[in-house]
Design a protein around this nucleic acid. Sequence first.
RNA 1: GUGGAUGUAGUUCAGUUGGUAGAGCACCUGUUUGUGGCACAGGUUGUCGCGGGUUCGAGCCCCGUCAUCCACCCCA
Length: 403
Amino acid sequence: MIQPLRGMKDLTFEESDRFVHIVKTAITVARSYGYNYIETPILEETALFKRSVGDSSDIVTKEMYQFEDKGGNDVCMRPEGTAGIVRAFVSAKLDRQPMKQKFYYYGPMFRYERPQKGRLRAFHQFGCESFGEASVYEDFTVIVMIGQIFDALGIGYDLLINSLGCQDCMPAYREKLVGFLTTIRSDLCEDCNRRISTNPIRVLDCKNEHCQAHLTDSPKLIHALCDSCDTDFNTLTALLDKAEIRYTVDTNLVRGLDYYNKTAFEFVSNEIGSQSAIAGGGRYDKLVEYLDGKPTPGIGFALGIERIMALVQMPRKQREGYYMGAMVPEAIDILLRLASRKRLEDKVTVEYNSKGFKSHMKGADKAHARYALLIGEDELANGTVWLKDLETKEEQSIRIDAL
RNA sequence: GUGGAUGUAGUUCAGUUGGUAGAGCACCUGUUUGUGGCACAGGUUGUCGCGGGUUCGAGCCCCGUCAUCCACCCCA
């Protein structure tokens, strides 16, 4: 028997129902904020992710499904959604249009990691990207929107926010941080020592307790922001306060993708184990430029559908539609005709085997049908059908042409 | 990539000191060949993850391998 690949899962029945429910809910909310659906290829040129997600990020250095295709191109399966959307945005020359553009997407992402609870190699994200809006009000709006999706799904969350600064304040801060880190270099773990030169910001959220103990006195970016970034961050927190959205400022929140700047946020749940991030995102004002477009500010987020599935309770299934069965073989033709008519307006299950009454009743119950519609000898002779509402238990005989 | 636990029926699991497999649920049939969910009776289902080794004999012991789960790491 052929099994699915490691870290990849088939979703059926109750699980796929929950998957669809989450996507539908997210789409409904996103559309109400003016987002339109965008579909982009799963396979992209490897260079796209190196340039956007970042050459030094874990995602790019060790987690990509990367290979050479039959034409000799260096390609990979998308490990995240934003890069492809931005590439599509630039490819379509939408960066030349003055109007603001908002897109939502959902689909599979691939990362070659060790599977764990809430971490698959093929997993699904729903995400939104908003282009052309530099205002911090958009940052606020995006956060509100995510909260609204979670509220609609009936799940709780904690919100973490941070500011990563911009071109003006980040480089100076970075230099200051490298200076500090160099002084405590010998107390830091191997990874952190490497990060000092490759990506010093990531040292801040190192999970190593020993490192964290030495980092308490590290310079905080939040205290080194330029006026514009500082003002925006204060505006954001004020807006959240006014809207009564609870949040925690986490100065160590560093998104693992290099393209983020200014506002960064993460939604976490404490009910699903160690892989607790259920949504994350932030602003990426330079990304369009990195990918050869005209300077265009952007902000977006993605939510992990499988992780959210673990939190969502589906409403109990109601009985619906018809179960049709015959107790004499000659009646099945009639049922088929009835079924195609009824299917224009309702769900219909037809049992093709003629069998006993009781067996049909059990079948109707199993099919979770609202109505059992049966034809036996008497009905066939009279040109009627026997119909029972399995919820109210009412039953009646109806002429076939009256249905 | 590192560490720990686990792989036995469709599913959840039991299987005592090694003696050729069992339970609940599910499924099928029946308990009035025209009344479902409940109850009762009966029944079906297994290369005991895979490969090798030890042994008269392995689900059980040993080695390898693959997979799953959990944690680290990383992130959605």
